[in-house]
Design a protein around this nucleic acid. Structure first.
Length: 314
DNA sequence: ATCCAGGCTCCTG
DNA sequence: CAGGAGCATGGA
């Protein structure tokens, strides 16, 4: 990983974020602490730290709760070689977007009245809110990496990709990794990924989508403005992006709130158990159950995944 | 050894 | 258009 030494003068700014209530930031930390995909996030005690590129600047975000679930407040510190009001505002906006901090959970909670099974889970993890991956590109690569392999191994692959071609930001003699940019990945020699246990097809998919993004043929920034069906069609036009991946990227990479990767093995297993099927639910069955959560299917999926991650018995 | 893992593509009927 | 085979790679 190449280390760009930030100049000796580090600029810092702070701001306060006021999420909609109820919101329990500790749940987000619990999620990230145990999430295999969260390899660049550093969770220490009650503090979240991670470097991201915001408006073209590499910055370090430091986030901690200064409120309570019924009156949530987050203190955000931004540090980097050039941090001004514009960067700080953009960073806060980005955090609010990926953590859905401006979304009112009340309508979601209301839709659970017809579903005691999910309602129980949502009560158990009160204040939990879906958290997206830091960028749509990172979410897309994580999805492709995770296709048809176990998540522990997927995490290993992600880590080796970051080691291979990610960059980093040094703040006060601590370095924070950043996820590589599409153009960087697009320029890789396939042999470098093959040598790091990426299968031939994974390698081809990863290089292909990265090249498409770098060339502008695939514009992830344009997707949120599309309808759900348009977005799925747009994304799945590229090799290596099937329906599962497209649905995953919408919910985990773009903050879409009504997208559920119904073919997901984990979802099929836990939903099958939770609703007493005695076996895994089929993709069709998951989609049928999900009708009850219409408008909030991403929230439901996130809660199910959270239950899986926390090994909740069903 | 055998089965499985946060699927995808391509080819049938 | 639905369903299934074949695929690639490690891990348990």
């Amino acid at each position: 990983m190449s280390v760009t030494e930030a100049s000796s003068t580090i600029q810092r700014q702070s701001t306060l974020i006021v999420p909609t209530a109820p919101y329990d930031f500790a749940r987000t930390l619990d999620y990230l602490r145990t999430s295999p995909a969260a390899i660049l996030e550093r969770i220490e005690g009650d503090t979240y730290r991670r470097a991201m590129t915001i408006a073209g600047q590499d910055v370090l975000l430091i986030l901690r709760s200064v409120g309570a679930p019924k009156k949530p407040r987050l203190a955000l510190d931004v540090a980097g070689s050039r941090v001004d009001d514009h960067i700080t505002t953009a960073t806060a906006r980005h955090i609010r977007a990926i953590m859905l901090l401006d979304v009112d959970p009340a309508p979601f909670l209301a839709t659970l009245r017809g579903d005691p099974v999910l309602a129980k889970l949502v009560r158990q993890f009160a204040g939990l809110r879906p958290t997206a991956i830091a960028s749509p590109y990172e979410a897309l690569l994580w999805a492709i990496i995770g296709q048809q392999i176990n998540v522990a191994f997927a995490a290993k692959l992600k880590r080796s990709l970051v080691d291979l071609c990610g960059h980093s930001l040094a703040i006060d003699s601590t370095t924070f990794g950043l996820f590589p940019k599409p153009a960087t990945v697009a320029a890789l020699d396939p042999a470098e990924l093959r040598a790091r246990q990426f299968s031939q097809q994974k390698t081809a998919y990863i290089l292909g989508v990265s090249q498409a993004i770098a060339s502008g043929a695939l514009d992830l920034a344009a997707v949120p403005a599309m309808s759900h069906d348009e977005a799925i069609a747009y994304l799945t036009a590229h090799k290596g992006i099937g329906r599962w991946t497209a649905e995953y990227v919408l919910m985990r990479g773009m903050g879409a709130q009504d997208s559920i990767p119904a073919a997901d093995l984990g979802l099929r297993a836990i939903i099958g158990r939770a609703y007493g099927l005695g076996r895994n639910a089929t993709e069709i069955e998951v989609r049928a159950f999900a009708e009850k959560w219409a408008g909030w299917r991403s929230w439901a999926a996130f809660y199910w995944w959270y239950a899986l991650q926390m090994k909740v018995a069903m």
